[in-house]
Design a protein around this nucleic acid. Structure first.
Lengths: 106, 106
DNA sequence: TTAGACTTGTCAATTTTCGACAAATTTAAT
DNA sequence: ATTAAATTTGTCGAAAATTGACAAGTCTAA
């Protein structure tokens, strides 16, 4: 089962047996805020992804994919978006890509 | 082909043969800002959906679906999210729904 | 060339998000 | 039970993003 990004960080942290305070220090933030992030009460700031990847020796691209899908999932969840509507959104995204492409060539 | 929300508003407006100034007045905003909205340079404020529905006699639920899918499309587009990743995001959204459900029953 | 429709740039005001600190609460070991 | 460390929660001001408003610009059609 997929997890939230916060739960994922907690998992990584526990695997390395780090405390909130220890990991927070490595990430240049407060342990209180990291706690909120792990518990889904705040968002992880995208700017810190490279640092996070480095700490846990993760591929940055893959980590960013974890992050992006989590953010999208949150958006889908919060807007009560059904599978059907998600399909429509996907088509609209394709349309935006097309728009951008035709704009480039002009 | 699906359109952006801004293009959709422009379509509605032209169908009723309203000017930017006229529609903007009905929506309680500046014609300059409405122009930006139609051209995708600003977001339409969700708070105005009921007003928009009323002006064009649209079903609010359906209009909101148009809006939500547009916002998601923008998110998908801006994060360069592939179909594959979107699938992951959908699963994560399902997980969030499940989390919330189990939280409710406690 | 003038009027009306639309677009673009800018800035202050509002709103939202974020980092930090203090004060709880929880957990684990003695 | 008592203590210490780990975690959580509440609140605050600062930083960032969004929005509304105004001014000045372009474009189009008489």
């Amino acid at each position: 089962m997929k997890t939230t990004f916060g739960e994922y960080i907690r998992l990584l942290r526990h695997n390395k047996e780090l405390t909130l305070t220890q990991l927070a220090a490595k990430l240049n933030l407060d342990s209180a805020n990291l706690s909120k992030i792990e518990n889904g009460k705040r968002d992880f700031d995208e700017k810190r992804l490279p640092k996070l990847a480095k700490i846990f020796k993760l591929n940055l691209i893959e980590l960013r994919n974890e992050y992006v899908t989590d953010q999208l999932a949150k958006h889908i969840y919060e807007t009560n978006c059904t599978k059907q509507l998600l399909q429509v959104a996907e088509e609209k995204a394709a349309y935006r890509r097309k728009l951008n492409k035709s704009f480039q060539t002009k």
